[in-house]
Computed example of a mutant assay.
Amino acid sequence: MTDTTTRVALITGATGGIGRAVTDRLVRDGFAVAVHYAGNKAKADEAVEAVRAAGGKAIAVGGDVADEEAMAAAFDATEAEFGGIDVLVNTAGIMLLSPIATLNLDDLDRMHRTNICGTFVVSQQAARRIRRGGAIINFSTSVTRLQFPAYGAYAASKGAVEAMTLVLAREMRGKDITVNAVAPGPTATPLFLEGKDQAALDNLAEAAPLERIGTPEDIAEAVAFLAGPARWINGQILFANGGIA
């Protein structure tokens, strides 16, 4: 059992590019971590072993983020191992791109389930369980402001995440728990890079005043800020995009 002075974070989608960077960053800040995975247990176990090899504390927890029973079990396992949860980072999400006119509605349903329902289910568990002084950190996207073609359904799902995040922050009054969302811009993850040629990546890099595409580590720094020292930032969407929007 971790002693009660150790802060504990549960990170959904922790085997993805941003999720893994967030895991590593919070471990450097001294967090014990629950590494959540949806289907790839091997990658979660690999992340856990890396944390332990570096002297940190970690467990793997699995399940569909939109499944209430699975997420309750993930929270239960984290609390049983570490004694409580201080920070929830909800990086789990999927991005399926198509013009609105030709979008397969099955893809819309898939994004709705993971991005909206999943965020809601996990946020609900967090609202019931996070310890005082803790933080709930959801994930939106800068595409809600950029209006890129083919991102309509994805941006709509993340707009819903922003809405529930802002409402939940007000509902947590009196609990000393902050609720915010990070909205990354173009970030060099496998999910984002898939299907893009070098010319497209160069154009995206030039769009930002800092003249590059973000890295998962850039986004993890924003999460670490909200998870730790940023106690007076609450009910906000933090755009981590190098000034592109």
Rank of each mutant, 00 (worst) to 15 (best):
I59M: 10
M71N: 10
R145Q: 04
V121W: 01
L168E: 09
T144M: 01
L108Y: 12
D176F: 05
A126N: 11
A135M: 03
G133M: 02
A80Y: 07
Q125W: 14
R110P: 01
C117A: 15
K175C: 09
G159C: 05
R129W: 00
D107C: 01
N90R: 05
D86N: 15
V143D: 04
I130F: 02
L168C: 06
A169S: 10
A66M: 03
A66V: 01
L96Y: 09
Y154P: 02
V167L: 13
A70R: 08
R128E: 05
R170N: 06
R132G: 13
R129L: 02
D106V: 05
R173M: 15
R173G: 14
M71E: 09
T119N: 10
F82H: 14
K158Q: 02
I137F: 00
R113N: 03
I59A: 08
D64T: 04
G84S: 13
A92D: 03
I130S: 02
G84C: 12
M164G: 12
G159P: 09
M95H: 07
G62S: 08
Q124M: 13
I136G: 11
A80K: 15
R128L: 07
L146T: 02
A126H: 10
L96T: 13
T144P: 00
Q147S: 15
M111E: 09
M111C: 09
F82V: 12
P149I: 07
H112D: 15
T91C: 08
M172T: 06
T91Y: 03
G134N: 04
A92L: 04
I136P: 10
S98P: 10
A156W: 05
A150H: 12
E162T: 10
R170M: 14
L97W: 14
A135S: 04
A127P: 03
A150C: 10
I137L: 00
A150F: 11
R129F: 00
G152H: 06
V121E: 00
E81C: 11
A58V: 05
Y151L: 09
G118D: 02
G159S: 08
M172R: 04
A169I: 09
K57G: 13
E69L: 07
K158Y: 00
M95N: 15
A80F: 04
A101Y: 02
Q147M: 14
A77K: 15
D109C: 01
K158F: 00
G62M: 07
Y154G: 00
R173Q: 10
G62E: 06
A160I: 03
A150N: 13
A155L: 08
A66E: 01
N115I: 05
G93A: 06
A155S: 10
A60P: 11
E68K: 12
I100S: 08
L97F: 08
A70E: 09
V167D: 13
D176W: 06
T78L: 08
L146P: 04
E171L: 12
A153Q: 00
R145Y: 02
R110C: 03
G83R: 11
D106P: 05
A156T: 10
R110K: 15
R170C: 13
R132L: 08
A163M: 11
F120A: 15
A92P: 04
Y151G: 06
K158N: 00
A160G: 09
V87D: 01
R113I: 03
E79P: 08
